[in-house]
Simulated scan of single mutants.
Amino acid sequence: MTRFRPCIDLADGAVVQLIGGTYADDGSTTITNHRSERPATYFAERYREDGLSGGHVIKLGPENDASARRALAVWPGGLQLGGGVNVTNAAMWLEAGAAAVIVTSSLFDDRGRFHPQALARLAAEVGPDRLVVDLSARRVPTDDTDTPGPADRDEAPRWVVAMDRWQRLTNLKITPSALDDVAEHAGELLVHAADVEGRQEGVDIELVSLLGEWGGRPVTYAGGARSIEDLDLVAEHSKGRVDLTIGSALDIFGGTGASYDECVAWNRRER
C-alpha cells in the first residue's frame, strides 16, 4: 500500500527545499522554498523515532558529505543516500550507514546517453537490492521524443529522464519497457516529477498512474505534493503501488499544506 516517504535535501550542508531544476552551485538560478535552521541529524532522528524507513537523503552539489554522514549515522540502515553516487563511492556510502544508494547521472555519458552497462556494474558492486535508480522525469511534447533511445518500442512517451540536477535531458524515455530494463538491475525506483518539484501545484497524476500500472518494483514518486490528500490521490491512481514523498508542503519544512504528524499517522493507520 502507498506510504509516505520522508526526505532530507542538502545544499551547502543545510537542509533545504528547492524548486526542481533551478539548482546551481553558485546559487545564480536556485529558488529556495525553505532553509532549515535544524541540522540533518534532527530530521534523521525524528524519522527514526517515527519509524519512517526508506526516506532519502539527497546531496545537492558540494559541501554536503559531512551533513549526510551525520544523518546516516543517526539511523544506520534507515535512510537512502543520493547525490554524486557512482561505482567508486557507492560502497563507501553503504558502509557509512545508507540502506541503499540512489543513482542517476553516473548512468549516462556526457552527451546524455544511457549506458545500461554502467548500471550493471554498479549493481554488481553493491547488489541490486541496495541500489535505487532515480529517474528524474521532465515532460516533453510527444512529437519531440523521436531521438533514438532504449525505449523506442513504446509509443508516445510523455517524459524523458533529466540529469545534472534535472537541467539536461537524456535519451532515456520513461515508458514501461524502459522501466523494465532499469529494474533488471535495481531493487527500487525513485521518480521525481522535476517540472513540478517544489512548486506545490499538485502531483503529476498521469505519471503516477503509469508507475502504478507498471508495478515492476517498489516506486517512490516525488514532486508537486501539496496536502495530505495527495496520499489518497496517489494511492487511488497507483492502486497502492507507489509511495509519495512530500517536501515543501510539510510544516517541518516551513510549509502550510501538509502536517508531518498526519503523514506519520497515515503510515500507521490500518488500510
Rank of each mutant, 00 (worst) to 15 (best):
P141Q: 11
M163R: 10
G215P: 06
A156C: 12
E184H: 06
E155Y: 14
L189G: 14
L131A: 04
V191E: 00
V196M: 04
L207T: 05
I205E: 08
T256Q: 09
V203H: 10
G215T: 13
L244Q: 11
G257H: 03
G202F: 01
V140W: 03
I174A: 05
T170S: 15
A194S: 12
E197I: 05
T142R: 13
A183P: 09
H237M: 13
R158M: 14
P176F: 08
V203Y: 04
A222H: 03
E229H: 14
T147N: 07
L135H: 00
G215V: 13
W214D: 07
A186W: 09
A137M: 12
D195Y: 03
P141D: 15
S227D: 15
R217W: 00
D143G: 05
H237T: 11
L190E: 04
P148D: 11
E197C: 02
L179A: 06
D143T: 11
L135N: 00
V203C: 07
E188C: 10
P141Y: 14
V234P: 11
Q200C: 14
G187H: 14
R165M: 01
H192M: 01
K239Q: 13
D134S: 15
V161R: 02
R217V: 09
H185V: 07
D154E: 14
R130L: 03
G187A: 13
D181R: 13
L179W: 04
G247L: 01
G255C: 10
A258N: 02
L189D: 11
S177H: 15
D243Q: 10
L189K: 10
A178R: 10
D243I: 12
D134K: 07
E213P: 00
T145V: 15
Y260I: 01
L211Q: 07
G255S: 08
Y260W: 00
N171K: 04
V191H: 00
I252H: 04
D232Y: 15
F253H: 10
G187M: 12
L250K: 05
S136D: 09
E236F: 10
W214Q: 10
R226K: 15
I228M: 13
E236P: 03
A162C: 08
I252S: 03
D181W: 04
A258T: 13
L233Y: 00
E206Y: 07
L179R: 01
L169Q: 09
D154Q: 12
E206Q: 04
F253C: 00
V234C: 09
I228K: 08
W214V: 12
G127K: 09
G254D: 10
G202W: 02
V196Q: 06
H237P: 03
V191S: 00
S177A: 12
I205H: 00
V160T: 15
G240W: 09
V161T: 15
T147H: 10
A186T: 14
R226N: 13
